[in-house]
């Protein structure tokens, strides 16, 4: 109950932010452009809704990080945390409530973008599919939620928004961009060229929350895949990304002086 009250208040506050309006606007514009680009500029292959995933996931990682990094450090800095904790809520309620509130904001942002762009998709796609479109949104929300958790964890663990901000910037760069570059370099130059991609390398790729869904099925590996490439292991990876940062941050936050 306490957690939901904190979440509700956080959501009420966040949706009134002009920054959020701007983020939703920019995301929607990006999505509209990107949809157009994917469906018209690559005529040689059949484009499906899922081809929109890669770059959109990067955008969602950035949005999740943006929503999370200030969530607790900002309130600690300004002093509104004293108001929040003046009410009968525990520090755990604050961490979890804020997390849920920000998750709601990520969901709203992504859903608004996709709903606005949907007529555009219907016009451009050769065979538009509601299932594929909704499935894409669902899959995209996973990295969004994970990065809210990670950035919020940084925010709960730092004393100042500056530290939390730099941590969040580094995270977003590493997981949204640098990861793919490093992976491509390794794949192209360091792995033996003929042997195919080793499974351990696939696992490392999958550790990036953006690629949680890369399992034996998606990769069409047949039945010979190890357990860590089975679909359920994606759930383990995502759960790890949520529980470890939030858990560690909660322990730090619980022990620290807030004023």
């Amino acid at each position: 109950m306490s957690i939901l009250l904190v979440a509700k208040k956080d959501f009420q506050d966040a949706i009134r932010s002009l920054t959020l309006v701007a983020v939703v606007g920019i995301f929607t514009a990006f999505l509209a452009f990107y949809t157009y680009y994917e469906f018209t500029m690559t005529p040689l292959t059949t484009t499906t809704a899922f081809d929109l995933y890669q770059s959109t996931a990067n955008a969602v990682v950035v949005i999740g990080t943006l929503l999370g990094y200030k969530s607790i450090a900002g309130e600690r800095e300004s002093g509104s945390l004293k108001f929040l904790l003046g009410a009968p809520h525990t520090r755990r309620d604050v961490v979890l409530g804020k997390f849920l509130g920000r998750v709601a904001v990520v969901v709203v942002t992504v859903v608004i973008g996709f709903v606005v762009v949907s007529p555009h998709y219907v016009m451009l796609a050769a065979s538009p599919s509601v299932t594929a479109y909704v499935g894409l949104i669902g899959r995209l929300l996973v990295p969004g939620v994970v990065f809210v958790a990670v950035a919020l964890a940084l925010s709960a663990a730092s004393r100042s928004t500056t530290v939390a901000m730099w941590g969040a910037i580094v995270l977003a760069i590493v997981f949204a961009f640098a990861w793919d570059m490093v992976r491509n370099v390794i794949e192209s130059f360091m792995l033996p060229p003929d042997a195919g991609i080793p499974n351990w390398f696939r696992l490392i790729t999958r550790f990036n929350p953006k690629y949680f869904y890369l399992d034996a099925q998606t990769l069409e590996l047949g039945n010979a895949a190890p357990f860590y490439l089975e679909p359920w292991f994606g759930g383990v990876i995502v759960a790890g990304w949520l529980l470890i940062p939030l858990g560690l941050a909660y322990l730090l936050f619980e022990r620290s002086d807030l004023a």
Binding site: D13, G79, G86, A87, A259
Partner: peptide
């Protein structure tokens, strides 16, 4: 304690948009 205590802290802030 918080359930039975009303608090007016120092150096607090409220939510500007609410």
């Amino acid at each position: 304690v918080r359930e039975r205590t009303g608090v007016l802290p120092q150096g607090f802030d409220l939510y500007d948009r609410l």
